[in-house]
Amino acid sequence: MRLRRGDGGEGAAPSVFAVLAFVGAAFLVLPLAALVARAPWTRAAALLADADLRSAIVLSLGVATGATVLAAFFGLPLAWWLSRGRFPLRGALRALVTLPMVLPPVVAGVALLAAFGRRGLLGGALEAGGLTLPFTTAAAVLAAAFVSAPFFVRSAEAGLSAVDPALEAAAASLGASRWRIMRTVTLPEARRSLTAGLVLCWARALGEFGATITFAGNVRGTTRTLPLAVFSALQRDPDLAVLLGVLMLGLSLAVLVALRGEEVRP
């Protein structure tokens, strides 16, 4: 029989670990506490009434949601393929689609310019079709989707891989179509990972800054999402930046609460 955690094993850590753990926790918590402590609550109502700020909030929610929808629409089939497909270089493809997750966001922005900018690889073709992406909300959505979609894809892939093949085989033996098996067996079984992936993807998209300001620019009401608004506010009114920071902290906290109990495996 294996010992489970909590069966008396916790005393094994050296006591100095407690000190290091305390320092580590303080380092992670202190800046957030300082942010909240510095928030100009007395000015909060006046600052939040600002129309530009409200447009940034609405835009942020819209961009993050748009990016998540894109990530789910194309990412689920991709995750399925990575999980079930048997093709050469699957590992390489998995690594490639994970890259934006670890790439510096500003590099992601430069890469998006190189691909979809006016002088980018596809820029000419897009422009000929009457579509110029930079400085548009569509560009902000693409930037957010580029950096956040891997969170959904990897989480979904992990969930799909964990579904017991026997269940799908049983459904198939009963004559269910591929679509029906996916709808009634596979996706419900992977539900938790899919939800966690969506929430993580949305959260990452909401916080996106570097790729957005590089590829989509900083246009008030069009591409100035909350992180860009924080950046802009810091140059003029640090109080406003702190307040926006607390707002985003609250949203992040809400994401964590939403993820509670979900299996987070990005």
């Binding site: 310019l113 002088r119 400085f135 620019g217 900083n218 246009v219 008030r220 069009t222 802009s232």
Partner: peptide, 20 residues
């Protein structure tokens, strides 16, 4: 609300030089 705002003048020149 259609002007992209850069945080310094070098950013403006870069965005124009890039052709964006």
């Amino acid at each position: 609300g259609r002007v992209s705002e850069e945080s310094d003048v070098r950013g403006v020149l870069a965005k124009v030089a890039l052709g964006e």
